[in-house]
Amino acid sequence: MSPAQAALAAAAAVTVQTTLAWSVSGTVVNLDLPLVVVVLAALSGGPLAGLWTGTATGLAQDVLSGGIVGVSGLCKCVTGVAVGLAGERLLVTTTWQRSLMAAAATLLHAGCFFGTYALIPTATPIGGWTEVAAQTVANAVAASIVIGAVGPVRRWQRSGQRQRPGPAAEGWRSRYAP
């Protein structure tokens, strides 16, 4: 995943989360689609992809939410780096493995998020572990749906790259890998 693709995916996830999901369902959906995008970006591009996607997505979420600016950014950046590092060391290739990673990332993100807010007296988020558990399941399902939707696009993209190879087609990993 290239930086431009990651930025586009992050922007799309935040927009869908704040407008479309609500327009369609008419209620607040307990789903963190931007986090799913961060996880998938980190798995495909490594820790630095996770860092930047997490930071950009989290800050965008902070600006469009009632919380303190920087908290989601911090938590998503930590989660992105952690998922990226785990993705480098573990075999995470199939859809269910990635969904499992999304679930684990949700728990890590929630721990970081609520932990940070526990230190800040000026704002308190809604919900508790029941909502976190529900979001863990929802994010895992969303991850499998996103992977299912993105799969054909990536296959089409790869077939295009085979015909037209070049440095621009290389992603985060080739740029930042040690």
């Binding site: 935040v14 989360q17 704040t18 407008t19 609500w22 607040v28 959906v29 307990n30 789903l31 963190d32 931007p34 965008a60 979420q61 902070d62 600006v63 469009l64 939410s65 009632g66 919380g67 989601s72 998020f113 704002a123 988020p125 809604i126 919900g127 909502e131 979001q135």
Partner: peptide, 14 residues
């Protein structure tokens, strides 16, 4: 109303 909170943990609208 053009949008809702970007996280499920707060209740704001745009």
């Amino acid at each position: 109303v053009i949008g809702i909170d970007a996280t499920p943990w707060f209740r704001t609208i745009t």
